[in-house]
Amino acid sequence: MEVEKKETQSKETIRRSERQAFIDNLKFSLYLLRKNPLVMAGILMVVFFVVTALLSHVLVDPATAGVYDFSKNYGWSKDAWFQWGVQARIIDEFHVFGTDGWGRDILHMMILALPLDLSIAVAIVSGAVAFGVCLGAVAGFVGGKLDEAILRITDIFFAFPGLVLAMVFAAVFGRNMVSLVMAVLAVWWPVYVRLIRGQVLAEKERAYIQALKAAGLGRVRILFRHILPNTIYPILVQATLDLGGVILTFSALMFLGFSPNPAMPELGNLASDGIGHFFEAPWLIVFPGLAILTIALAFNLLGDGLRDVLDPRLRR
C-alpha cells in the first residue's frame, strides 16, 4: 500500500513538473517571438486577414457585389470609362482598385475571395499534414520493409516537376473544387512524410525512449504520447509556411484556367481575367496578385519566425 501511494504521488509530481516545464517553454517562446519585429508583423498581418475573412460578408454584400452589370463595359475600351481610383466621370461610384470585366469592384471581390482562399489553404494543408504525418510516423517507427515502401512512393512524388502533377490531376478529374483541392494536396503531402520520418527516426534512438521501453510502455503509446509531441515543432513550422505556399499554388492553378467558374471570387481567378488585356488594365492582375503576395508573406513571416523560435539550437 505504501509503495502504491508513493507511486501515485511521484506520478503526480512528474505530471506537475511536466506541466510546469511546458509552461516555461511556452513563456520562453513568446519572449523570443516578441523580440523579433518581422514575426510580430507577420502575426498582425495574419490576424488582419483572418478577421477580414471572417467579416467579409459584413463588409461586402455578396448579392450586390456579384451582380453582373453588363451596362458597365470592360474598363479599357475607348468608348467606356476608366475606373481607376478616381471618380468615374459618368457613374458616380468610387472603385478603389478598379473593376473587372463584369463591372464588379475588385476590392469587393478580393474581400469576398479571402475566406475562400484561406479555408481552401487550411483544408489542403490539414489534409497534407494528416496524410503525410501518419505515413511518415509509421514509416519511421516501424521501419523495415514498410518504411522502404513508403519512402519509395514518396520519392516518386518528389520527382514530379513543378505543377505538372496538379495540372494533369485537375485536367482529368474535372474543374470542381474537390478535385482541385486533391490536386494540390497530391503535390504537397510528401514533404511531411520525410519531415516526420526523420524526426521519428532521430527521436526513437533517444535515451528517454529506451527508458520508456525498458519500463514496459507499449509501442503505440510511445509513438503517440511521447515521440509525436516532441516532433511536432518542425511540422508546425512547415505547415505555417505551407499555408502561404498552398495559396500560391492554388491561385496559380486558377490563374491558368482551371477554375470551376470563371466568375468565382478567388484571387487567382480574378487575376486571370486580366491576361489578355494586361497593359491596358493592369489593376486586374496587380491587385489580386498583391493580395496573394501579402497573404503568403504573412504566413511566411510567421512560419519563418516560428522556425527561429522553435529551433532548439538557436534557443539559449
Partner: peptide, 25 residues
C-alpha cells in the same frame, strides 16, 4: 538583417505571374 529577410521572404511569397507581369508593365 531584417531588411534582407524581408526581401528574401517577399521574393518567396511572390506569385510568379504577378512578378512577371509587373516587370513587363
Amino acid at each position: 538583417d531584417h531588411v534582407s529577410r524581408l526581401i528574401a521572404l517577399t521574393g518567396y511569397s511572390t506569385p510568379s505571374y504577378w512578378m512577371g507581369y509587373v516587370l513587363q508593365l
